[in-house]
Design a protein around this nucleic acid. Structure first.
Lengths: 204, 204
DNA sequence: CGCCTCAGTCTACGGTGTAGAGGAGTCTAC
DNA sequence: GTAGACTCCTCTACACCGTAGACTGAGGCG
């Protein structure tokens, strides 16, 4: 079978997304997906050539849920809306989100998102030659931040450090301890980071 | 067996790293590691409680190879050295590197690296209260850039887009086509991004 | 009627991580 | 010298994984 069926693809991806959200990426197996929609595992292979393609489909599904900012808004409004939507996606689907980073994902869905960002940067007055670099910088940061949050890289550090305090191992940590004890307000932090980024983009 | 043996841990991690470098992360199985050092798979469980712990050990091993910048250098020299060393790590071990992003990794190794960055930011004159945020921003970007490079997120986009040109799907891509055809000089790009970051950090 | 296509099933294979039991070798104490 | 404990490792086995290959049963169409 060369050509793939498409009708039930969305249904399959819904099931896969639900499983990953509920039980984590490790639980996302072909057998689990099949069982959820009442098929045998092998039936899925009529819709996706293999598991990797199913995961790519999942990535595409996530990307299509990113809303295109209406061109009426200003470039920084559109950029900011995209960034916050991306981060929301990561919070809603923390298990699946890291796949966005792991897979090259040169699908039409991904290119469409990049095109929005290109357009926003062009409207911001960034020279054409610089647009691709700035896009990579911005999307790397946004994806990186959201991914870090999704898999817990931003939390619990101070707890571990406290157990080591008293020994002089980590002087900067000791000095900053009052600021490390409280968990960071990541909403405010994301906003501040975005403001810094916009400051880079805004033409001198 | 509650307590783990440690003597042969480095040997095991060396084998694991070599396998991942040579044949990819998928080939990094307990059986493959065991065979490489002439043991049975179950022997590894005396040194690591399970495969996840072995992977955590691998992350730690990578982190320890990041050199501490001598405090004699200026803060931006140290920061830049750290960034380039991180990126070099990603190029040397592209299969394993993404694990740095995937695992919270609050081990002593990770905290030590963070401590260097804290110190550099303090020396840069960043207010104490802002240091943790800036550290997260910088390391998110550096890790994100290096990870993107390692798994190919920065390449081959234009090739796919070219096949879609002619249809008006992606207007910004069409306008930027001359700059998308040539592969980006990622060395120069990384340097430019770092310069932008340093500009954010440097106190007004 | 015969034949084709299609959606889905069934069976099976080689791989995975790892639990549990046991077996050699060495160290210590009597 | 020998019994026991401890350490390091092996062996066997299990449940689960992705998926190849062959099959079934139900239309559609000549």
């Amino acid at each position: 079978m060369r050509k793939l069926k498409t009708e039930r693809q969305p249904e399959i991806l819904d099931a896969a997304l639900a499983i990953a959200d509920e039980r984590g990426l490790d639980a996302l197996t072909m057998r689990a997906v099949a069982e959820r929609i009442g098929l045998t595992p092998m039936a899925l292979y009529g819709y996706f050539r293999n598991k990797d393609e199913l995961l790519d489909g999942l990535v595409g599904r996530l990307l299509t849920t990113l809303p295109a900012g209406p061109p009426s808004e200003s470039w920084d409004q559109r950029l900011s809306a995209f960034a916050w939507a991306t981060r929301r996606l990561a919070r809603e689907h923390p298990s699946v989100f890291p796949l966005l980073f792991a897979r090259p994902s040169v699908t039409a869905d991904a290119v469409r998102v990049v095109d929005w960002i290109y357009q926003a940067l062009i409207d911001a007055g960034v020279p054409d030659a610089e647009v691709p670099r700035i896009e990579r910088m911005v999307s790397t940061f946004v994806l990186g931040f959201a991914t870090s949050e999704a898999n817990g890289r931003f939390s619990a550090a101070s707890h571990d450090v406290r157990s080591r305090r008293g020994r002089g191992d980590f002087p900067a940590h000791q000095r900053l301890m009052p600021y490390l004890d409280a968990p960071a307000d990541l909403d405010a932090e994301f906003a501040a980071d975005l403001a810094d980024l916009v400051r880079i983009i805004r033409p001198a």
